[in-house]
Structures are given as C-alpha cells and as structure tokens.
C-alpha cells in the first residue's frame, strides 16, 4: 500500500517534469529574436546564417529538435552554451555546487531559527514573548529579501565592517574565505525561510499541545522536554514538512536575488546571465534544473508525510 502510494507520487513527479520540459522548450522557442542573427550580428550574409542554422540544427522542425534535446538531457548532455561555446554542464556544474553549499548552510541555519521561536511561542501563546515574536515575524514577513539583504550589508559591512561586501569565491578561496563569504547570504536566506515556518509551526504546536495525548504525557509526569519533542512535535511537523518543501523551491528564487546582492557566483547568477544573453540552451538547462529541484523537493515531502503517518506506514 505504501509502496504503491510512493510509486504513484514518483510517477506524477516524472510526468510533471516532462510537461515542464515541453513548456520550457516552447517558451524559449517563441522568445523574440532569431538565434543566428543574435550570434552573427545583423550584417551576416544569408549563406553564413544558413550554415549556422544547419550547424545548430535549426533547419529541422521544432518537434525533432525537442526530441534531440530531450534525448541529450536524458543522457546527461545539456547542450552547448551559445554565448561561451562551452558545454552547458561545464558552465553550470561548479556554480550549482556553490549554490548547493549556500542553500545547505541556509537550510541548516533555518532549522533552529524556526523551531526554537515556534516552540517558545507555542508554549505560552498570548504572552508578551509571543506577542513580540509575532510582531517581529510580521515585520520580517513584510520586508522583501533584497531589502533585508541590503540592510544586512549596510549593517555588517558599512556600519560595523566585519564582513566582506562581496561574497566572491573562486577555486583559490580557502575555508575561512568561504565562511566569511557565506555568512551574510545564508543568514538572509535562512531568515526568509524561517519566518514562514515559525508561523506554521507555532500554530501547529498550539493545536497539538491542546490535545489529550499531550496533556496525558504531562500528567504521567513526563518532563517538558519529552512532552514537547517526543509527544507534541512529531504531530505538528506534518504540515510544516510540506512547507519546507515549498521553502526549498523558494530557495531557488531567493538564491537568485540574494546571490545578486552579494555577488555570489552561484546557480542564480548563471540563470540571470543566460536570460540576459538569450542563451537558449543555457536557459533551458537552468530552468529544467530548477524545476527538477522543485519537483524532487515536493515529492520527497509527500513521501515523507506518507512515511511519518503510522496509519499509512503499517497498513497492509
């Protein structure tokens, strides 16, 4: 039963991804401007254009090109970047790794950043602490990422100059360079994820804390730590888990902005660059990768909530 549910989820994910690839391909296809003129310039001779079109495969119908492209993608070949003439894999690879490190840092930071305030607020809803925390939460909710990022920049680079203004890392950067480069962007990202999670977790925990079984745990003499983390928390995490998945997807968007503000050489900047240059293969590849991450995260969250539900887990 569980196996079947999970398989269905995965099947849906694959189908969605396939649909995304069609949409992405079609969207790039109808982008204004002819690829060849963009590469060769307006003064190119028709012969040269024809040669290049053939070379790039643009003499074939769109369906064929889609099939070729998809075939390549499935074999791990994302094509060749038009602007740099390098393989897309080569262009994206190291940048993706940089972003993965940034996202991981942000995610790890966001766990205590959301759990602790949520638990503290839920234990005494309506208290002064809860009111103040909620107010801060709403203010942060209303501040867009780039503004938060800019405020942080001013605060920790200009007012108290402890951190570098750009987070440029290269192959030559050492460990401490990485740490200094990552602090600001990951904190900003972590905060913007946590503010949603805190709200949901707080409400979820308040609901669960009023349940009979939580009171029972308290009345059989369990200390607060056991009541909170063993009896209440696992039942409040369900909805938050799904939000976390959305958050991971949100990270992709947030990363673009934050990377830009801090000049961090990541996946987001590749994506922006590709769009600015109208580099079709690179756009297709980046969007597809973003979709892959998004869909995988959501599918994993679904599978997670299937697995954490004992009724589904052990049903025959």
């Amino acid at each position: 039963m569980v196996g079947k549910l999970i398989l269905t989820r995965i099947l849906y994910a694959v189908l969605t991804l396939l649909a995304v690839s069609v949409v992405v391909f079609a969207a790039v296809e109808i982008l204004p401007g002819d690829i060849t003129t963009r590469i060769l310039g307006r003064s190119a001779t028709p012969e040269a254009v024809a040669v290049l079109r053939k070379q790039l495969g643009y003499d074939q119908p769109a369906v064929m090109r889609y099939a070729n492209w998809l075939g390549g993608v499935l074999q791990g070949d994302l094509g060749t970047s038009l602007s740099s003439q390098r393989s897309v894999n080569e262009v994206i690879g190291p940048r993706l790794a940089n972003t993965a490190i940034l996202a991981l840092c942000a995610f790890v930071l966001s766990v205590p950043l959301s759990l602790l305030p949520a638990a503290a607020q839920a234990l005494k809803p309506g208290s002064l602490l809860d009111t103040i925390a909620s107010a801060i939460n709403f203010v942060l909710l209303a501040i867009p990422d780039y503004l938060l990022a800019s405020i942080m920049l001013i605060l920790f680079v200009v007012v108290i100059p402890v951190l570098p203004s750009t987070s440029l890392v290269t192959d030559a950067s050492g460990f401490w360079d990485w740490v200094r480069a990552l602090i600001l962007p990951s904190v900003v990202l972590a905060i913007s994820i946590s503010i949603y999670a805190i709200r949901l977790l707080r409400d979820g925990l308040i609901d669960v804390l009023s349940r009979d079984y939580v009171r029972m745990a308290e009345l059989k003499g369990m200390p607060l730590r056991v009541v909170l983390w063993r009896h209440a928390f696992p039942n409040a995490i369900g909805p938050t888990l799904n939000i976390t998945a959305l958050n991971i997807s949100y990270l992709i968007g947030g990363v673009i902005i934050v990377e830009r503000v801090f000049s961090f050489p990541g996946f987001g900047s590749v994506m922006v660059g590709a769009l600015q240059a109208g580099d079709a293969p690179l756009i297709e590849a980046t969007v597809l990768i973003a979709a892959l991450i998004y869909i995988t995260a959501n599918t994993l969250a679904d599978i997670g909530s299937i697995l954490t539900n004992p009724k589904l887990r052990s049903a025959q």
Partner: peptide, 11 residues
C-alpha cells in the same frame, strides 16, 4: 483519562 482513543500519542 476519559477518552483512551485520544489519550495515547498516535505516532
């Protein structure tokens, strides 16, 4: 307690 079905932690 009154209701055993809600007094035991479901998970």
């Amino acid at each position: 307690p009154q209701n055993p079905t809600t007094a035991l932690s479901p998970h």
